[in-house]
C-alpha cells in the first residue's frame, strides 16, 4: 500500500519534472551582469552571458528582464507619430575612456550644455544610449554601456534634471559609428548619445 503510494508520488514527481524541463525556456540569452559598481573601471565577467537586445531602463524603474529575439520588422510605411524621440542638435554626445564609465573632465562642459537645453525644455523626455568600442565580448560591453548611460544619467540628475524624464538604454558595441581597428575610431564609439522627445 505504502509502496504503491510512494511509487505514484515518485512518478508524479518524475512527470512534473519532465513537464518543467520540457517547458524550460528556449536557449535563452541571459541578461549580462553589470560590472561591480565599486569603481569606474570594470573587469571581464567570468561567465559568458548573452543578451539579444539592448538593455533598457526607465529611471527609476529597473530594466526589463524578458529579452526577446531580434525579429526583422518589415518596413511598413506608417505615418510617424507627432511626438517621438529624435536627435536634437543641441544635445551632444559625450565620450568615455577605454573600459571606464566615469564622466571625463572634458565631457563636463558638454553635459552642462545638454543640461541647459533640458532645463529650457522641461517637457522633453530624454533617452540616453550607452555605447562601447568593439573590444571585449558583446555581453560585457552591454553591461559597460549600461554603466555609461547610468553614470551619464546620474550626472544629469545631479545637475537638476528630473530622473523621471530620463530613460537609458545600452547598445554595447553593436551600434558603432565606425568600424576601424584604431584608437581614434574606438574613442568615437565609446559614447553616450542623447535623444529627446518633446511632450
Amino acid at each position: 500500500m505504502m509502496c504503491g503510494k510512494s511509487r505514484r508520488a515518485g512518478f508524479a514527481l518524475l512527470i512534473l519534472a519532465l513537464i518543467l524541463v520540457g517547458c524550460a525556456k528556449r536557449p535563452q540569452l541571459v541578461q549580462a551582469q553589470a560590472p561591480a559598481p565599486t569603481g569606474a573601471a570594470v573587469t571581464e565577467p567570468a561567465a559568458p552571458v548573452v543578451s539579444p537586445q539592448p538593455s533598457v531602463s526607465r529611471a527609476p524603474e529597473p530594466p526589463p528582464t524578458s529579452p526577446t529575439p531580434a525579429v526583422p520588422t518589415p518596413a511598413v510605411p506608417t505615418p510617424p507619430p507627432a511626438k517621438e524621440f529624435a536627435e536634437v542638435v543641441a544635445l551632444q554626445d559625450i565620450y568615455f575612456d577605454f573600459d571606464r564609465y566615469d564622466i571625463r573632465p572634458d565631457a563636463v562642459s558638454t553635459l552642462a550644455a545638454n543640461v541647459d537645453w533640458m532645463k529650457s525644455n522641461p517637457g522633453a523626455l530624454i533617452l540616453i544610449e550607452g555605447h562601447c568600442d568593439e573590444r571585449g565580448t558583446n555581453e560585457y560591453n552591454l553591461a559597460l554601456g549600461d554603466r555609461r548611460a547610468k553614470s551619464t544619467m546620474d550626472s544629469l540628475v545631479a545637475q537638476g534634471v528630473a530622473a523621471d524624464r530620463i530613460t537609458i538604454i545600452s547598445y554595447g558595441e553593436e551600434r558603432p559609428v565606425c568600424a576601424e581597428h584604431t584608437e581614434s575610431c574606438w574613442s568615437r564609439n565609446r559614447r553616450a548619445h542623447f535623444l529627446a522627445k518633446v511632450r
Partner: peptide
C-alpha cells in the same frame, strides 16, 4: 529609425 515609436525599436530592421 527616424521616427521611433518605441524605445525598444530605436533601430529598424529590414530583411
Amino acid at each position: 529609425d527616424e521616427h521611433p515609436e518605441d524605445l525598444q525599436r530605436a533601430f529598424k530592421e529590414v530583411p
